[in-house]
Structure formats: structure tokens, C-alpha cells
């Protein structure tokens, strides 16, 4: 039997070092035996299959789309209304991919796919309206803008430091960018020129909030005082 010279504990025969202090066992009279009281094989965590849920969802979406499509072609065939239902099914399926179908999808790709799904849905709706001008002029640009702002927010949440204050800072910055972008796109579509109005009020509020947050973040004493008074 070997003892740890540091800890004074007796060590089980298979231990080549003391597990408490890592001191090697040097005992010329007794070789370290390989027969450990613990198994050598490491276990793997069982993977839970979510196949059932994804199969069910996909089946419901596909069958709804096919049945509505057939109903549209064979019975109520005056307008291509089924495209709205099929588009909604595609959009819902795309949104559910990271939740039930492929859970390892990165959040960036999920947001990008959601944006793409929305654009496709809006495009399908153009077949129900008389012209597709609204889609190219305002529908698609706003969908792209919302996707880009969401991606920016996700990057901030994932890459930059996170706290209640920083999260608020990122959210208000995104809100300001979204509102300015929306007004530019709406003005350009409706009037042909850009004349900023209501979004500048939102921008002003956001700038005030952001400056306050940046001040709080840069002054530890101030931050602690606010945290103390507003803790919940």
C-alpha cells in the first residue's frame, strides 16, 4: 500500500498520483496496478429524438398546402387564394425549424431563414393583388430591413457583454435604426422623396436613453446607486 507524502492518506493501488494534490506515487516495492475500482468506459448521454414532432409538423403543413391547393384548383378557382395558405405554411415551417426540426441550427441562420420565409410569403401574396409594385417598393425592403436589424441585435447579444443595461442599449439602438429605416422606405414608396418626421422623435428619445445608459455604464458609482434603488 502507498501513502501520499503530502496528504498522509492511503492511496488505492491503481492510483499513480494522489487525487487530492497530484503528488506522484513513487513506491519501488509496489508497482501501480491497473485494476481501478472505477470502470474505464465513459458513458454517452442519450440523444432524445425529436423526430416524431418534426414529422407531425411537416405532415400537417404539407397536407394543408396540398388540400388547399387542390380545393383552389378544383372548386373555388376564381382567385389563387390558396397561395396565401401555402405561403403561411411555408413561413410557419421555417420558423419551427430551430424549435422542432433541426435544433442545432445557429441563431443567425434561423433569423436569416425567417426573413427569407417572410419575403417568399409576401411574394406569394402579390399573386392575390393586382400589382406586385407594393412588394418591390415596400414589402420586401421592410422585410430585409427587419431581418438585418434582428441580425444586428442577435450579434450584439451573442458577441458583446451582456447585462440589463447593455441589453437595453442594444435594443434602443436597434429600435432607432428600425424606425429611421422604416420611415425612409415608406416615404420613398409613397412620396418618391425622403422627408424624415415621426422617426426623428423616436430617434431623439432613443439617443437620450442611450446616452443615459452609456453614462451609467461608464460610471461605476452611479451604476451601483441606480442598481441599489431600482433592484427588483
Amino acid at each position: 500500500m502507498s501513502y501520499c507524502v503530502n496528504c498522509g492518506v492511503e492511496l488505492e493501488q491503481s492510483l499513480g498520483q494522489c487525487p487530492l494534490c497530484n503528488t506522484p506515487v513513487i513506491n519501488p516495492r509496489e508497482a501501480v496496478c491497473n485494476k481501478s475500482p472505477f470502470p474505464e468506459e465513459k458513458g454517452q448521454v442519450e440523444v432524445v429524438k425529436r423526430k416524431d414532432m418534426s414529422i407531425l409538423l411537416t405532415t400537417v403543413m404539407v397536407s394543408t398546402s396540398i388540400v388547399c391547393g387542390l380545393l383552389n384548383v378544383l372548386v373555388y378557382s376564381s382567385r389563387p387564394w390558396s397561395l396565401a395558405v401555402i405561403g403561411a405554411c411555408i413561413l410557419l415551417w421555417v420558423i419551427l425549424i430551430p424549435i422542432a426540426i433541426y435544433t442545432r441550427l445557429s441563431v443567425y441562420t434561423s433569423v436569416l431563414l425567417d426573413g427569407l420565409g417572410t419575403v417568399i410569403y409576401l411574394y406569394m401574396l402579390t399573386f392575390l393583388s393586382e400589382s406586385s409594385q407594393w412588394f418591390w417598393g415596400i414589402g420586401m425592403p421592410i422585410a430585409v430591413l427587419v431581418t438585418l436589424v434582428t441580425e444586428f441585435l442577435v450579434v450584439c447579444f451573442q458577441m458583446l457583454p451582456r447585462s440589463f443595461l447593455t441589453n437595453t442599449l442594444y435594443s434602443f439602438t436597434s429600435l432607432a435604426a428600425l424606425n429611421i429605416g422604416m420611415e425612409i422606405l415608406i416615404d420613398r414608396y409613397l412620396q418618391g422623396t425622403v422627408q424624415l418626421g415621426w422617426s426623428t422623435i423616436v430617434l431623439t428619445v432613443c439617443i437620450i436613453v442611450n446616452i443615459t445608459i452609456i453614462t451609467l455604464l461608464s460610471r461605476k458609482r452611479l451604476r451601483n446607486a441606480v442598481r441599489k434603488r431600482l433592484h427588483f
Binding site: 492518506v9 492511503e10 492511496l11 488505492e12 499513480g16 487525487p19 487530492l20 472505477f38
Partner: peptide, 10 residues
């Protein structure tokens, strides 16, 4: 008197 056993990889 303490006897030690462990599964730690050291």
C-alpha cells in the same frame, strides 16, 4: 486512517 479511491484523470 483514510484510504482514497478516485476516478479522476490526473
Amino acid at each position: 486512517h483514510v484510504k482514497i479511491e478516485s476516478n479522476r484523470e490526473m
